[in-house]
Nucleic acid binder design. Structure first.
Lengths: 157, 157
DNA sequence: TCTATTGTTGACCAATTTGGTCGCCAACAG
DNA sequence: CTGTTGGCGACCAAATTGGTCAACAATAGA
């Protein structure tokens, strides 16, 4: 239950990859796909909602690629998940209160909303820059040069 | 994303129903199905993991039915969801650390684990008795006799 | 013991979601 | 104009979800 789909997981890794290459100009989808071990055709679908959401911009043609449209510290994980997976809510009526007039009568509703707020609290307080910083710190702790580890941002799931 | 399936939602309502009838002996599945607006055949499948998990006991034959095996204040929502939906974890590698030796290298892993702990915190701190109390309080606030509202524990989702 | 009642189990099924692939089109640098 | 690169929609297989149904097991009471 309560699983994130690959959309959210892969997509977060894609953005982390872009965050780690922040300021380097357009990044090739091909390179992201290789580093994050995502198939190129599937990556194209993952990137689409990020572009539509104004989080990523793309340039076509030679020397093209994708890059972040906002600075990593301005991108909250809650926005990312929202774009990739839709509203964060364990049950439908929590997200869509107007459609369910009798919700206030049901106590389970209250609990699911508490769960939603708990999830949202974590995602809202985490920015892409936080992920970038944590990743770099992990690499430093290993005393390894960064470029040898750029493929190691997967989560094996 | 992150939706609870009907297993978790319906199952929680079933237990709330049993909590509200705590001490009244075996409750007919038929009655639960009617009050909670769940089809009887489907309810039978919902109740099975609760029985297997030792949370509910059943008695067959005339004057049979199901009832809580533990007191409502001893039943945490986290156990309920665990029984009905399996492990609470937004991604697989968070729940099953041994199987993914490289997880410590991946920062997204850390975030998903924070989300898991946030969810678990809410569910762990809520007991079935809490739900029962809240439900009764809502009914009182409406100044309506309880028996007229026993069907109103759904969540419309 | 017979019977009606009630829960148990497993087979089965349709719809939806998930996790992709593939081919063609659009844009752009040189 | 040509090659490179992303955009987009059609299509697909597998798993999950959300059920139904029929046969069976247990038990209370006549």
């Amino acid at each position: 239950m309560m699983k994130l789909s690959t959309k959210g997981r892969y997509g977060t890794r894609v953005l982390l990859d872009l965050g780690l290459h922040w300021g380097e100009g357009p990044i090739l989808l091909k390179d992201i796909a290789r580093r994050q071990e995502i198939s190129l055709p599937y990556l194209e679908h993952l990137i689409a909602p990020l572009i539509a959401g104004g989080m990523v911009k793309s340039i076509r043609g030679p020397r093209g690629g994708v890059s972040l449209l906002k600075r990593p510290e301005e991108i909250r994980l809650s926005e990312v998940i929202q774009l990739l997976e839709g509203p964060i809510a364990p049950v439908e009526c929590v997200h869509n209160p107007e459609a369910y007039p009798r919700s206030p009568l049901c106590v389970t509703h209250d609990i699911w909303d508490e769960v939603r707020r708990a999830i949202d609290g974590v995602l809202e307080s985490t920015t892409l820059q936080d992920l970038v910083d944590r990743q770099k710190q992990k690499w430093n702790l290993e005393h390894l040069p960064r470029h040898e580890k750029q493929g190691a941002t997967w989560e094996d799931a």
